Amino acid sequence: MFSGLPFSYMFVFTMVSGTLFSISSSHWLGIWAGLEINLIGFLPLLVYQKKMTESESAVKYFVVQALGSSFLMFGSLLSYSLSFSWDINLSNEFYIMSILIIMCGLCIKMGLFPFHFWLPSVMAGLPWISCLLLATWQKFAPIFLVGSLMEVNFIYWICLPICFMCAGSSLIGGIGGLNQTQIRSLLAYSSIGHLGWIVFSLMYSDWVMKTYLLIYIIISIGVFTSLWKSNLPEMKSLIKISNKNEGEMSVMLMLLSLGGLPPLLGFISKWLVISFVMNANLWGVMVFLILGSLISLFYYLSLFFSMTLNKMKKSLVIYNSQNPLDKIEILIILINLVGGVILISSGIMEGF
């Protein structure tokens, strides 16, 4: 996968170990150390092709992650100075400031609104595999840490800023992708929009969050694998795929699933969040989340129609090669097609 970089498996192991160490730590000093180990392992993977754009993206990513780590460490030290313990609780009113600072640090590391500014520019200069890791694995630790923080301190004053960030992320993810010409930047804004849904689902159900995150990872693997195999840097390159009729339907089907078009698998995750929030008094936030998702689906559908309206007479081509990437791509396409239909059918049958 990273054949151009010596010791690449060591860096991947370091990155994975840092994330697992951070999630399993019992206090914030261990969490900070785990995030730094993850950063040390991930940075060499960003520059394995030794291109100027990759080096620029790696420097931007390092600066942003260092800023998030400084917020995280400052909030932890502020909490420690008040109780001489790395555990956070609400026995003192001054803990509110430390929790907010820690939350800001984690949101900077994730790229959640209003700290999303770095993600599109960083992802625009990275290779496809690094983009996949940045959009999926690198969000694991901050998302689960935000969830644990909200589980311990779930009160009204922390719910309002989280709702604001989630609604803003969904809108930015939709509006920011309208004027994009690069596929990497488009997928970065899509990641920002999905991140708003994931963090919002944390306030109600860990199971819904994990299901949404799993579905997003499955679809992202299919999207980035297809684009990596086709080597497409810009939006106009998708039109070149349609002229060759190579992977046209597979790429667009997974992009539509990523946008949440029913009955594909990407719609099921949003449907789960909506069904769990129906009894809560947060329909104002849901309106912004759904609006941002509809805007994202709009430019995916526009791209789909521009590619396929002139190709109505051509049939879908299924690959017959022995490339394992083709098999993974076909498997994810079947999961997107069949998974959503099965889940919707099971929900209808339970209703009866």
Rank of each mutant, 00 (worst) to 15 (best):
S275V: 10
M1Q: 11
I102W: 00
K50A: 06
I108P: 09
S346N: 03
V208R: 00
E36C: 08
I23F: 02
V338K: 02
G18F: 11
S25V: 05
N279S: 13
G266F: 00
L297Q: 07
A66T: 15
N153K: 12
L5Y: 14
G173H: 01
V341D: 07
M10Q: 06
E36G: 03
L214H: 04
V317L: 13
I218E: 03
L72P: 00
W271V: 00
G284E: 10
F305R: 11
I318S: 08
S130C: 04
V341Q: 06
F352S: 07
L186W: 11
A188V: 10
L90Y: 06
N38V: 04
F298V: 07
T14Y: 05
E248M: 06
G75C: 06
M15N: 08
L253V: 08
Q180C: 15
W28S: 04
K314G: 08
W271E: 01
K270N: 10
I239D: 08
K60F: 06
M165N: 09
M52Y: 10
V287Y: 13
M165S: 14
L72Q: 04
S26G: 04
T225D: 05
L195A: 08
Q65E: 08
D326H: 06
K314C: 11
S257W: 04
V287L: 15
S315H: 12
G125S: 09
C107I: 06
S257K: 10
L337A: 15
I348S: 07
A188C: 08
M1E: 08
L119V: 12
M110W: 00
F117G: 07
L171E: 02
L186Q: 05
I101W: 09
L187P: 04
I333W: 03
K236M: 11
G105F: 02
V285W: 01
I172Q: 02
S205V: 10
I175C: 12
P44M: 05
M52H: 11
S17M: 15
N281G: 15
F117M: 14
A58I: 04
I344G: 05
M165K: 00
W128P: 01
L134D: 00
V47G: 01
M73I: 14
M1N: 11
L178R: 10
L264M: 14
M15V: 03
S242W: 02
L238Y: 04
S169E: 03
L334V: 14
Y61C: 12
W271I: 00
K311F: 12
I183M: 02
M235Y: 14
L106R: 11
L29S: 09
Y216Q: 11
Y61G: 03
L309T: 13
L343T: 09
T308A: 13
F144A: 02
T14S: 14
H116C: 12
I215A: 03
S79H: 06
S24R: 07
N231G: 11
